[in-house]
């Protein structure tokens, strides 16, 4: 009985490790994304944990900006087991009349890319997350914002 209890404990522990831990090397992703920033200066970054579910889902990042300033949006998607589409809009996903400013579809299989933006007070980055497949549950996407200093 002792052995059974111990086995159950170990199994429960293992299953939690496999399903709940999304292992992302933030520092490594930041370094890679940073290589695409120049000549823009680093401002901030947002690591998004992408969890693949039964159906397509959307995860959004709201990015407030100074209107008239020039910005670069950099994406590093290397830590994703299955590609997500990145879309950038002028309004949130709740808004009916929003305008698509960028889609990563044109980037093909690239896992690192950038998009320059200006004349906007708030931008909305949407990760379009496809349904889960066998063995594909989670990963990480890194967004980095750069701004022009002068």
């Amino acid at each position: 009985m002792k052995k059974i209890a111990l086995s159950v404990a170990v199994l429960l522990g293992l299953s939690s490790f496999q399903t709940d831990s999304i292992l992302c090397n933030v520092g490594e992703l930041e370094t890679k994304a940073g290589n695409l920033l120049d000549p823009y200066k680093y401002d901030s970054s947002e690591l998004t944990k992408i969890v693949y579910k039964d159906k397509e889902t959307v995860s959004e990042i709201e990015v407030p900006l100074f209107i008239g300033e020039k910005y670069r949006f950099v994406f590093e998607l290397e830590a994703l087991p299955k590609r997500v589409e990145v879309q950038i809009y002028n309004k949130s996903k709740e808004s009916k009349n929003r305008k698509l400013l960028f889609s990563s579809k044109a980037m093909g299989d690239k896992s690192e890319f950038q998009f320059d933006i200006s004349l906007l007070r708030t931008a909305y980055v949407d990760y379009i997350i496809p349904p889960a497949q066998d063995g594909v549950h989670a990963g990480c996407a890194l967004f980095m914002l750069g701004y022009k200093l002068k």
Binding site: S44, S59, E60, E62, V63, F66
Partner: peptide, 13 residues
Amino acid sequence: NHAVSYNLPSALQ
């Protein structure tokens, strides 16, 4: 659990 997250500007910017 956040379906929306927020990327706020840095003090330097």
